[in-house]
Design a protein around this nucleic acid. Structure first.
Lengths: 345, 345
DNA sequence: TTGAAAGCGGTACCAT
DNA sequence: ATGGTACCGCTTTCAA
């Protein structure tokens, strides 16, 4: 690999001038710049990232962090997380545009003890410019990030501070639209397969659902809210429990498309028809929705926007030194074939 | 951040000794090592990655490369590529185990010109230890990788040389099992929705299918081989074309599960039943297969193994300086409900 | 505007 | 086994 020294020699200037030419900020005469650039091109010169990083104490790198102690991508193989693929795609696109590389740091050997501090040390060792965290990170890690001063953006998780903020879909409004749609169709007994309200999307969606109900003067029946865990298995079981309760309902709102499919299977396995007997609404609007039958009515999350805004917010934090306010990306209902008016009964 | 100098001072040894303690290879007395480690722990010391990289000319980083000129994750949002999520997961898991970080380099601004050389320069600038490439990379990039001497493992793409090899499922055998299964059920008129044979999986699967046919003394009808492009839309259209041909067939073999679902939809949209009228076989065995109805008969690809062997092969190349032979990971047929004997007719 | 020189935080070779 | 020291390639004062 050619070094700036080589380029300097060929261009007949000092090594410092080569550095200035590439760092952009400094003033270099047009003539010199041209000479240097020609020499650099001829030698195929690219600045050494490690050397730059060593002296500047930073690198054009954004670290990705994800839920739990598991490696980021472990989770992506769970069908309920196909959603994050879209987000990752958008992150990559926009990070690239800004000239940043995405890094998936190897998880420490012993994820259990002193997680937080160790995690931060590894990030510092890598001199990452910032962190984007998908989903709810473990508390120790989240806390450590908030205190570290490392620019951080949480996606789908709460967390803000001087150098941290979060972006997510407008879950309140998304859930409100979903429930409102059902209400307009005439449903009054609406069940929800819901994740705990301790996680941000769970909290916001519950609030949105209740708001829609309240607007229509309908009281939420707590028996129709069944806890689940984002997994299709959990949703299937929750639906079975719901059916076993013997409480009347004509519609089910799920927390994800994948869960919605599981709900539909649970219903049809019991001889119920969707949407004739029961309406079902999902969340996410995955690409593969177009492949499923019946077409799923669901709340579309704009993964492109999610990723774009996350990168944008992170860059702002890196450059300005302070994090912007939390960001909500609009969500919108997509009506397909899994919802219909409740049976006449 | 604490430096090795700080640790040395606290431990009452020289900075060089601290370095030795951490590099592991050199000989340090037990007593000294203990002192140094205590001091390091107290200071929260972690070696600076950039400094290490600068002096060693390498880094514990594996770069991910993927198809086309697009950013890696662009492709992952296409439903036909959900398969690679599983592979990525396995890659991450095994890279972590070996202490390597995964890097997704930002794509150059102008992906068109001088792609190859520029790509390599960026990798060298980052001093990546090796590259893992998913799917068929653009020719310029692939060629550049092969010539660069950078350890490389291609997944699902041909490519080998002194420092490069490839790993993929045993596509020949997988396709053979699929077709053999259909033959055993009594099918003779077997259609294939197939990607071009210029890509490795396309080539191998075609060979496997023909081998199974040949074993059974069945002649392949070229009219039953319809070209497609891995996408569900392409598969849907291909199926429609197939139906329009007026050529008899009782089974369809697709190149992926997602395509298989599209094939099923195309068939049922024409009033045909699966598997009563037509049997359909997919490839991949995605996690979400368990969520689909009918249950899809498909060829299972072991994504864990794929990722594990890829990392293993790359580490071998990095450490030994020479690449191992190409690796085929066993695939196996999973029989569910989308295949049955052909209609009596 | 440009050149010279001092590090950034490590590694590794040379003595001791 | 340990300490001293010469770099790795670049950024950034400080002078000229």
């Amino acid at each position: 690999m050619a070094t700036s020294e080589d380029v300097a020699r060929l261009a007949g200037v000092s090594q410092a001038t080569v550095s200035r030419t590439f760092s952009g900020s400094a003033r270099v005469s047009e003539a010199t710049r041209a000479k240097v650039e020609a020499a650099a091109l001829a030698l195929g010169y690219v600045p050494d990232a490690a050397a730059q990083s060593l002296v500047t104490s930073t690198s054009k790198t954004i670290a990705l962090n994800a839920f739990g102690n598991e490696a980021l991508l472990s989770l992506l193989s769970r069908p309920d997380l196909y959603f994050y693929i879209g987000v990752l795609r958008a992150l990559q696109t926009h990070a690239t545009l800004a000239g940043y590389d995405l890094l998936m740091p190897s998880t420490p050997d012993r994820p259990d003890q002193s997680d937080g501090a160790d995690y931060i040390r590894r990030l510092r060792s890598r001199k990452v410019a910032g962190v984007i965290s998908l989903g709810a990170p473990p508390d120790a890690r989240k806390q450590a990030l908030l205190e570290s001063g490392i620019p951080t953006v949480f996606i789908d998780a709460a967390g803000s501070g001087p150098t941290a903020t979060h972006v997510s879909s407008d879950n309140v409004d998304g859930a409100r639209q979903a429930v409102r749609h059902l209400l307009e169709l005439g449903h009054r007994r609406i069940a929800r397969i819901a994740v705990p309200e301790t996680v941000l999307p769970g909290h916001d969606r519950a609030a949105g659902a209740r708001a829609a109900l309240a607007e229509a003067g309908v009281m939420e029946d707590p028996r129709l809210v069944i806890r689940s865990d984002w997994t299709p298995e959990g949703a299937y079981d929750a639906t079975t429990i719901l059916l076993g309760l013997g409480v009347e309902f004509t519609a089910v709102v799920a927390e994800s498309d994948i869960e919605a499919f599981a709900v539909i299977h649970a219903l049809t396995d019991q001889g119920l028809r969707v949407p004739e007997d029961v309406s079902v609404i999902g969340f996410d609007d995955l690409d593969l929705c177009t492949l499923m039958r019946p077409g799923l009515t669901t709340v579309h999350q704009d993964v492109q926007q999610l990723g774009a805004r996350a990168v944008e917010a992170l860059l702002h934090t890196i450059e300005q030194g302070s994090a912007p306010d939390p960001i909500a990306v609009p969500a919108r209902l997509v009506v397909r074939d899994s919802t219909a008016p409740p049976p006449a009964s």
